[in-house]
Design a protein around this nucleic acid. Structure first.
Length: 422
RNA sequence: GUGGGUGUAGUUCAAUGGUAGAGCACCGGACUGUGGCUCCGGGCGUUAUGGGUUCGAGUCCCAUUACCCACCCCA
């Protein structure tokens, strides 16, 4: 019989890697909570229309990357390809903007799905953490958001580059769009096939085409930052001042664009050495029009998402050291009951412990403990059981001592002390 | 959707076209309650699948498939 395998592009997360995931997610939730972002959990399935509206009909995600299906009623549904649309829907549906005063800060963590060809750092099921702020129009809030992204990077000891841009608004972007088309039209013969197609659909995307590498080839490409309307230009200035106050190290990059239609003004991206070409670890910006476009009030919004696979790939390998393992063995049948009691008592304390109830010879217990990578060994042999004691051995230092079987607190204290200063 | 690379034991890898192997891991045993050993024993694996060439294919050719990498796109 053929063995079952995971679906292409969808990966199991198994030990020991799953431990790093658990810890990373714990830390992300903690950081979010401290900055007063509240968690919001939305379904993985939404109506197809929500994404079509929100992300824009011309985006690649909507056009060819979504998992779309019908339920038994014929309703068109989709696996979420990103997190923002669902959060916006929930924000509107539950009147979260009305019952409490803004600004409203939310975060989410979870899987997203896109039907793309997998490669390093890109999977069909991938995971994101996202931060979203509703009800605040200020570029200062954008700056605070970028600062939060920076805090996350710093926390995980990740060296990333923060690149910032303004991509204008419905007032000034159309004019820039025309300038760009006018600039590239005469050069159309020099462009790659994709860009020839894109020039009328989404000319902004020509800017980050890797095949054409426009920024190296032409030095006089019109820049969005030179075409901003007075309001966008002023906001961009305020953004930069606020970032300076936060001491966020950033570089201006006029070639940053966003793949999804809902973004305006502030746009930013964080790249890091992920080992592949997929080096964008996080990205986001302002999306003032999305809430209204989704059927809510005219609520300004800003946010970003970070890819967890990519984030984890740049977190130093030794960032999370597993808690030292303690292990217990009985040396004869009469020790098993005591070992069971010991397991039960230790389970109430924050120590990582596992027992094995097949009696072993002392030597074999040592070998087994070593192979398992345990630091601490507890032995229930004939002498110990007779005296209601347990033998403890530190497998690293070789030290050993006897404890009374009921001295659980003393044992726990010792284990925790060793954890702090080995 | 388009390219390129790679598929041999759980794993890492061998095997000039001529009998499919090793290390590690794993399981069992020996070694009287003190170490990461040592020794002994344990693997017929449709060499990814299906065709073809050949006296003979893990090896060469074709197709399929899976994985990886890249394009594309993005987190």
């Amino acid at each position: 019989m053929a063995r079952y395998t995971a679906v292409k592009g969808m990966n199991d997360i198994v030990p020991p890697e799953s431990y790093r995931w658990m810890r990373m997610e714990e830390d992300l939730r903690l950081i979010a909570s401290r900055l007063n972002y509240e968690e919001i959990r939305t379904p993985i399935v939404e109506s197809l229309e929500l994404f079509q509206r929100g992300l824009g009909e011309t985006s690649d995600v909507v056009q060819k990357e979504m998992y779309v299906f019908e339920d038994k009623n014929g309703k068109r549904l989709a696996l979420r390809p990103e997190g923002t649309a669902g959060v916006v829907r929930a924000f509107i549906e539950h009147n979260l903007g009305i019952e409490r005063p803004g600004p409203h800060k939310f975060f989410y963590i979870g899987p997203n799905f896109r039907y793309e060809r997998p490669q390093k750092g890109r999977y069909r099921q991938f995971h994101q953490v996202g931060f979203e702020i509703f009800g605040d129009p200020t570029p200062e809030m954008d700056a605070e958001l970028i600062y939060a992204a920076m805090l996350i990077l710093d926390h995980f000891k990740v060296k990333g580059e923060i690149r910032v841009n303004s991509i204008g608004c419905p007032v000034c972007r159309p004019a820039y769009r025309e300038r760009l088309i006018a600039y590239f039209r005469p050069k159309i013969g020099e462009l790659c096939g994709d860009c020839r197609r894109r020039i009328d659909i989404n000319p902004l995307r020509l800017l980050d085409c890797k095949a054409d590498a426009p920024r190296e080839r032409w030095s006089d490409i019109p820049l969005i930052t030179e075409s901003l309307c007075p309001e966008c230009a002023a906001d961009f200035e305020r953004l930069r001042k606020a970032l300076d106050i936060f001491h966020v190290p950033y570089v201006l990059d006029s070639f940053i664009v966003r793949g999804l239609d809902y973004y305006v003004k502030t746009a930013f991206e964080i790249t890091a050495e992920t080992g592949g070409t997929q080096n964008a670890v996080a990205g986001g910006g302002r999306y003032d029009g999305l809430v209204a476009a989704t059927g809510g009030a005219a609520v300004p919004a800003t946010g970003f998402a970070a890819g967890l696979e990519r984030l984890l790939s740049v977190i130093p390998a030794d960032f999370y050291a597993p808690q030292p393992l303690a292990t217990g063995f009985a040396l004869f049948d009469g020790g098993v009951a005591d070992l069971l009691h010991f397991t039960k008592h230790l389970s109430h304390h924050p120590v990582r412990f596992m027992a094995e109830y097949t009696p072993r010879k002392f030597k074999n217990a040592l070998q087994k403990a070593n192979k398992r990578g345990a630091r601490h060994l507890f032995i229930f042999g004939e002498d110990e059981v007779k005296n209601q004691q347990v033998l403890y051995k530190d497998l690293v230092t070789g030290d050993q001592r006897l404890f009374g079987q009921h001295e659980i607190m003393a044992i726990v204290m010792m284990l925790m002390e060793k954890e702090v200063s080995p």
